[in-house]
Simulated assay, not measured.
Amino acid sequence: MKRITLTCCSILFLAPFACAQLAIAKDSPQSNKGLSSHRAIYADLSIPPDEAWILPVKSSQLSPGKVISRQLKMPGLKPFFLVGDDPRSLDWLRQRAGELKAIEAAGLAVEVADTNALSRIRAAAPGITILPVNGNDIAARLQIDHYPVLITATSLEQ
């Protein structure tokens, strides 16, 4: 139960960093003193937040290895993938970066030693959001032992 709570808290904490949005803030008539009633507020997410505090990330139930593809029935699930900072994951990311970007898959780095390792992972798939997260709960729920792996609403594949 603690792992589920920790995972949920991590996702809720990291969700605002996953995509940029434009928010419009409306001032109340008393406070704007003749100024425009609307002003745009932009969130600059081009600079990743300092994630050093969450590192290292270790997922004891997952390791690099071969994943057997199988069908899933999870309607509405947005595509995501699990990777680590190992050579197999980095090669997989480089080979599939175009496809991952095209389907707008988000990445979870489930085995990351430090900020340099996270930078290497992100460099292998530029333009794709990849966040460091413990993957044990996902591994248990989807009954997987290895990564890299792509999870979609209809399949689990390497």
Rank of each mutant, 00 (worst) to 15 (best):
R70L: 01
P75A: 03
R120S: 13
K58S: 05
E51R: 07
I121N: 00
S119G: 01
T5F: 08
S89N: 07
A139W: 07
K101P: 00
A153W: 02
P48N: 05
S36P: 02
D137C: 06
I24H: 11
A140M: 06
D44K: 04
K58A: 05
K26T: 06
G34V: 11
A43L: 10
L72Y: 05
S46N: 12
S28Q: 08
I4H: 02
S119C: 01
W92Y: 11
E104D: 12
V112G: 04
A20F: 06
L82E: 08
T7P: 00
A23G: 01
P56H: 04
R120P: 00
C19N: 13
L93H: 06
D85Y: 01
P64R: 04
E51Y: 05
K33C: 04
F81T: 01
L131C: 02
G84H: 11
P49D: 02
I41N: 10
A43W: 04
S63E: 12
Y147M: 06
I47R: 13
P87H: 09
V83T: 15
A106C: 10
K2S: 14
V57L: 01
F17K: 01
A15N: 02
I103L: 15
E51G: 07
G34W: 11
A20S: 15
S60H: 11
Q71Y: 03
K73V: 13
A140S: 12
V110Y: 04
P48T: 08
A139C: 09
A139D: 08
K78I: 09
A109W: 03
K33R: 13
I68H: 10
L45I: 14
P87F: 04
P126L: 09
D44Y: 09
P49F: 07
E111F: 07
E104A: 15
G34E: 10
F13C: 01
L22Y: 02
K73I: 12
V67T: 12
N134A: 14
A140C: 01
Q158H: 11
P49S: 03
L100D: 02
Q21A: 15
G98E: 10
M1W: 06
P48R: 13
T115N: 08
L35A: 15
S46W: 01
A97C: 09
V57C: 01
T5P: 00
E99S: 08
S89C: 04
E51S: 06
F80T: 04
C8M: 09
A18C: 14
V133C: 04
A25N: 11
R39V: 00
I68D: 13
A124E: 08
K101M: 07
S69L: 07
A153H: 12
L93S: 11
S36Y: 09
A117Y: 00
Y42D: 05
M1I: 08
P79Q: 12
D50T: 01
G84D: 08
K101T: 06
E104S: 15
V112I: 13
T129L: 07
I54M: 11
A20P: 00
I68Q: 14
S60L: 12
G84R: 09
